[in-house]
Design a protein around this nucleic acid. Structure first.
Length: 259
DNA sequence: ATGGCGCTGCATCAGCGA
């Protein structure tokens, strides 16, 4: 089974690229973030035509998440239950995993803007609520994969130029602690299960030729419950789509699991 | 130190992203 995540920065603009990518990479589930689409504008038909189902949570202009899947999902959950938030940042669905099932969650964690911003306070608060909910999810689901844009680079090795990022969002100690708190619930960063090329990133700024210079950060992650770790065969970043014409600023991360 | 790029919308610029 293959699971992938991709922040597409507008599904309306990126739909042809997503469809083309799925044709080349027929993964079992693709988690999308930043749809930037009103819920009713989701292009379900386009995915149906290529043999996929979808669960999504959309809103006008900002945010929005989806799980595109080969199988029909069950027990869909939108956003963090009990956490009152108009921003659509979470969609969860349960998919078949061999004879068992797997809870697949697509998450778009807040950016935070800057360390002195209200949005930074919201980011840390959101992570706390997300962790509380994941703790509950872990009690009801054995296999859980949480894929998405976490907007946190876990370590300095995940940042092209750590010195320049000091004091900025994505790398601050409280953000890294918030991500670590999720991991400590019993998850593993699938990417780091394997030897990886140095300077592996999943996001590059549109400006300053960042992609050409590989001046990126690794903020898109696949977290696997410990039950899934022995099943994980690989986890790779597909840099291809970042080189497309009119690309998203993020590129897909793909994990392969065996039953 | 600033802006740079791209997307959105009661738009012709501002808010936001990371």
């Amino acid at each position: 089974m293959q699971l992938a995540t991709w922040n597409v920065n507008s599904l309306k603009v990126r739909l042809p690229q997503v469809l083309a990518w799925l044709a080349q990479n027929p993964v079992d589930a693709l988690c999308l973030q930043e749809l930037k689409l009103d819920h009713d504008k989701f292009p379900l038909q386009a995915f149906k035509e290529i043999g996929y189902h979808a669960s999504w949570a959309g809103q006008k202009t900002y945010n929005g998440v989806a799980v595109i899947s080969r199988a029909q999902g069950l027990n869909e959950t939108r956003n963090i239950p009990g956490y009152d938030d108009p921003q659509q940042r979470v969609i969860a669905t349960t998919l078949p995993f061999g004879q068992e099932s797997i809870r697949v969650i697509s998450a778009y964690c807040p950016n935070g803007q800057s360390l002195d911003s209200d949005k930074y306070v919201y980011k840390l608060d959101w992570f706390k609520a997300f962790a509380q909910w994941l703790k509950v999810e872990k009690q009801t689901h054995r296999h859980i994969a949480v894929l998405g844009d976490y907007n946190v680079a876990p370590k300095d090795e995940d940042v092209h130029n750590p010195e320049k990022w000091v004091g900025q969002v994505l790398v601050s100690d409280p953000e890294r602690a918030a991500l670590a708190a999720l991991v400590d619930l019993g998850f593993t960063d699938a990417f780091r299960l394997f030897e990886q090329p140095p300077k592996s990133f999943s996001w590059w700024d549109y400006r300053m030729n960042s992609f050409k210079r590989n001046a990126g950060v690794r903020i898109d992650h696949v977290l696997l419950s410990e039950s899934l770790v022995p099943h994980c065969q690989s986890c790779i970043i597909d840099k291809g789509p970042r080189g497309n014409e009119q690309p998203s600023d993020h590129t897909p991360v793909i994990a392969t699991l065996s039953f």
